[in-house]
C-alpha cells in the first residue's frame, strides 16, 4: 500500500511539474468554454426541453475532449519511463508489477478527472444567472460525472496499455487515439443497421458509447453500461500487466 500511494503521488506530481499537464488542462478548458458559448447561443435562439447537461453533451465537443485529451494524458506513463531508463530503476525496487500498473492507472485517472472538474462551474453559473434555475438538476449532473468517470477509466486503461507497448510517447498517443477512435466509431454501427431483434443490432446497441453517455446525461444509470466500462477497463489493465510481466519471459 505504501509503495502504491508513493507511486500514485509521483505519477500525479509529474503532470504538475511538466508542461504537458498544464497544456492539456488549458486545451480542455478552452473547449469547455467554447462549447458553453455555443450552447448558450443556441439556447437563446430556440428554447429546448432537455436537461442542460444533455445540451452540452450534444455540442460534440464532449467527445473531442475525451478522444484527444486521454491519449495525451496517458502517453507518458510507461513510454517515458522506458525511454529515459527509469523503468529499470523502478522495476528493481521491491514493487509488484500489479502495483505499478494500478498506480499508473490511478494517477492518470485522477488527473483526467481533475481536468473535468472546471466543467462543474458552468452549471453553477447558469443556475445563478438564469431565469429558470430549475433547469440545472443535480441528478443528471451527478450521473453525467459518473459517466465521465467510467469513460475515463476505459480511456485511461486503454492509453496506458498503448503506452506500455512502446518507448516512443508520440507513438503511444497515436495508438491510444486510434484505439479510442475505433471504439467510439462502433457507436455509429447501431445507427447504420436497421433496428430489430437481430443479434447484430443488439450487440451494436450494447457497444454504442454514444448511447451510453446519452443515458448518463439524462440521469439514467444502467448497470449494463457500467458492466461494459468496468469489464473493458479490467481487460486493458490485464493486458498492460501482461506486457509489463513480459520482460521476464521475452
Amino acid at each position: 500500500m505504501q509503495t502504491f500511494v508513493t507511486l500514485v503521488r509521483r505519477e500525479l506530481g509529474a503532470f504538475f511539474v511538466s508542461l504537458t499537464g498544464y497544456a492539456v488542462m488549458a486545451g480542455v478548458l478552452f473547449l469547455f468554454g467554447f462549447s458553453m458559448v455555443l450552447m448558450l447561443e443556441s439556447l437563446n435562439a430556440t428554447p429546448a426541453a432537455v436537461p442542460i447537461v444533455e445540451l452540452f453533451y450534444e455540442t460534440a465537443f464532449f467527445w473531442l475532449i475525451v478522444l484527444l485529451a486521454a491519449p495525451v494524458i496517458t502517453m507518458r506513463s510507461f513510454a517515458l519511463e522506458r525511454a529515459s531508463g527509469t523503468y529499470e530503476t523502478l522495476m528493481t525496487t521491491p514493487v509488484s508489477d500489479l502495483e505499478v500498473v494500478l498506480a499508473k492507472f490511478t494517477g492518470n485517472l485522477i488527473f483526467f478527472l481533475i481536468t473535468w472538474l472546471p466543467l462543474l462551474a458552468y452549471p453553477l453559473i447558469i443556475k445563478r444567472n438564469s431565469a429558470a434555475p430549475e433547469a440545472v438538476a443535480t441528478g443528471p449532473l451527478s450521473t453525467t460525472f459518473l459517466g465521465i468517470f467510467l469513460l475515463g477509466c476505459l480511456y485511461m486503461s486503454m492509453g496506458i496499455f498503448a503506452s506500455s507497448l512502446t518507448r516512443n510517447q508520440i507513438l503511444a498517443a497515436m495508438n491510444a487515439f486510434g484505439m479510442g477512435l475505433c471504439l467510439f466509431f462502433l457507436s455509429f454501427v447501431s445507427k447504420m443497421i436497421p433496428l430489430g431483434d437481430t443479434w447484430l443490432s443488439k450487440v451494436a446497441s450494447h457497444v454504442s458509447m454514444f448511447d451510453h453517455m446519452l443515458d448518463f446525461v439524462r440521469g439514467v444509470v444502467d448497470t449494463r453500461h457500467i458492466t461494459f466500462y468496468v469489464s473493458l477497463t479490467a481487460l486493458f489493465l490485464y493486458l498492460t500487466l501482461k506486457v509489463v510481466e513480459s520482460r521476464r519471459w521475452k
Partner: peptide, 12 residues
Amino acid sequence: YMPENNPLHTDM
C-alpha cells in the same frame, strides 16, 4: 542497483 547511464527523474 544503478543501471548504465544512471537514469533519474530529471523533473524532481
